[in-house]
């Protein structure tokens, strides 16, 4: 609390968040899957950013905190993409058969 910074207008941010929430709820009603993904997850990321930057005062925080949080998210990314080939590309038991067929391997690579 020793650092003085101007408080953002919290109520304004809150109203923005509610608008975004309404959008993300309305998104699926159009029943376009791609659009739903964008409204659902795109808006989630925007909302998360708004909350983190304003409510959590990340805007005013030292760079090291940003670094810390980004590092966590990057590590999660590493985890996800390291695991994904095993868990997601199995499709039951077909993938090794695919390796057996050499042409198929080349396509995948």
């Amino acid at each position: 609390m020793s650092e003085a910074y101007a408080h953002p207008n919290y109520v304004k941010i809150w109203i923005w968040l509610l608008v975004l929430l309404a959008l993300s709820v309305a998104g699926p009603m159009l029943e376009i899957p791609t659009l739903t993904i964008i409204t659902a997850f795109g808006i989630a990321i925007v909302k998360a950013f708004l909350v983190a930057a304003n409510f959590m005062h990340l805007k005013f925080e030292k760079k090291i905190i940003w670094f810390l949080l980004l590092m966590s998210i990057c590590m999660l990314g590493v985890f996800f993409f390291g695991v994904a080939p095993d868990i997601m590309m199995t499709e039951g038991d077909q993938w090794i058969d695919c390796i057996a067929d050499k042409s198929c391997v080349e396509q995948r690579l």
Binding site: P28, I37, I43, A48, V51
Partner: peptide
Amino acid sequence: IFLFPLLYIA
């Protein structure tokens, strides 16, 4: 905020 789209919307 992330659980909501994952569990309810998608």
